[in-house]
């Protein structure tokens, strides 16, 4: 069974707020949790959701290089305006939450399981 989820579905996760949703119709297939940008570049799968603390412009840049389609900013971190703008330009969805990375990862996995439309 292939895990697959519309980014739209992430908006429904309890405690998550979408702050940039220009490409919400995108489909995602996996999650990846990391705060090290080199690690994200090296290891984040394409078509994935990134769970991270890093709320700045460069996170969008590495996410874009890795093919990440959505970023979940944890622990109440706010996305600065230049980050929002870059995400819009790159077609990457941004979500904010007060969950820490662990809690957010668990919720993401649950979303994949319940919202799975695998064929």
């Amino acid at each position: 069974m292939i895990k697959e989820l519309s980014v739209e579905a992430l908006r429904c996760v309890e405690g998550w707020r979408c702050v940039q949703d220009a490409c919400a119709a995108t489909r995602v297939e996996e999650g990846f949790t990391s705060d090290l940008l080199s690690d994200i570049m090296a290891n984040a799968p394409a078509q994935s959701v990134l769970v991270t603390l890093q709320s700045h412009l460069n996170t969008v840049a590495v996410a874009s290089l890795a093919g990440v389609r959505a970023i979940v900013l944890c622990s109440g971190r706010e996305a600065p305006p230049d980050m929002l703008e870059a995400a819009r330009r790159e077609g990457i969805v941004l979500l904010q939450t007060h969950d820490n990375q662990y809690q957010a990862s668990v919720k993401l996995e649950a979303a994949f399981r319940s919202g799975c439309v695998g064929s």
Binding site: D35, L36, L37, S38, D39, I40, A42, T52, L53, Q54, H56, N58, T59
Partner: peptide, 9 residues
């Protein structure tokens, strides 16, 4: 703190 300097570059 910005997520750089992980010694992986």
């Amino acid at each position: 703190s910005l997520g750089f300097g992980a010694g992986m570059g």
